[in-house]
Design a protein around this nucleic acid. Structure first.
Lengths: 145, 145
DNA sequence: CGCGCTATGATAGCGCGTATCAATACCCCA
DNA sequence: TGGGGTATTGATACGCGCTATCATAGCGCG
């Protein structure tokens, strides 16, 4: 399915900015991008999109299920393409490197815990903050600045 | 140990605002307070403390280990008294009710996962967002507004 | 008690994100 | 294919949580 069809299917009008932003997430090797990252990357590609539009499109894509939003413990939200498989995140405190993982048992216990407390689990956030053992942390910073 | 001694031990000058804020956390039944919560509660007790001081004291207390700071998925940070036992949080999406839990097995697996990926676990955040089954959610909102 | 130095309070500033609103671009239909 | 109605865009003002600034106040040591 083309990006155009994808947007139509979701009931979103097919516009330049939306196509450009979607293409960006599909092409870049950066899995996790902030709104500002997106804005800058578009700029460097000489694609002229307003910052407000970037924010709007990102939230629309999130509601449409195309993107997933995360709030790692810094102040900016990051978005990643929703490829379907749920996972949690492991983040290096030194360099900001992000890695993904999934643990069946943890997922199971989360549901059990919620149930034990009399609630129904709706969603969860599990962030493991780690430190690279090496001083010269090999990973590049993920989010700019 | 008195609050005064506690502050001295930590190398913090014993001042009115610091004593008042510490007393607040020790007395209130609200385990999790935002900076604004603290500010308002002091106001209603006719204790005149500037908002800037509230923010400063909270971060000082956090660094000193008296308080623990959490960023639940809303925009404001909340603080709770550090009573020593580590725990994670379960939050009702409807009413903002906060409950605490601890799961030995999840803790264990978190360390194992970090290790498997070649990192050393420094800290973690695990938030379970749940929904009260009942429409008339019985729990009061925890953070004001 | 008095002095030095830190803490405080009022307020300006900052960063991320959202609301506003006129101008634009998409899409439908003739 | 082109015109018109409506959703989208972009520039910018605003909101909110929090921090920086700086003159004044108050803690505590001698």
């Amino acid at each position: 399915m083309t990006s155009t069809d994808q947007l139509k299917t979701l009931g979103l009008k097919v516009t330049g900015p939306r196509l450009k932003i979607l293409a960006l997430f599909e092409q870049t090797d950066q899995r996790h991008l902030t709104a500002d990252d997106v804005y800058r990357l578009l700029m460097t590609d000489s694609v002229d999109v307003g910052l407000a539009t970037v924010y709007r499109v990102l939230t629309q894509f999130e509601h449409a299920g195309i993107l997933i939003r995360h709030h790692f413990d810094n102040d900016k939200a990051v978005y990643e393409l929703n490829r379907g498989g749920h996972h949690d995140h492991l983040l290096c405190l030194q360099c900001g490197h992000v890695e993904e993982f999934f643990d069946e048992e943890i997922e199971r216990r989360q549901h059990a815990i919620a149930k034990k407390h009399g609630f129904k689990l709706a969603e969860h956030a599990l962030h493991l903050y780690v430190e690279c053992e090496r001083k010269d942390c090999p990973n590049r910073r993920k989010t700019s600045n």
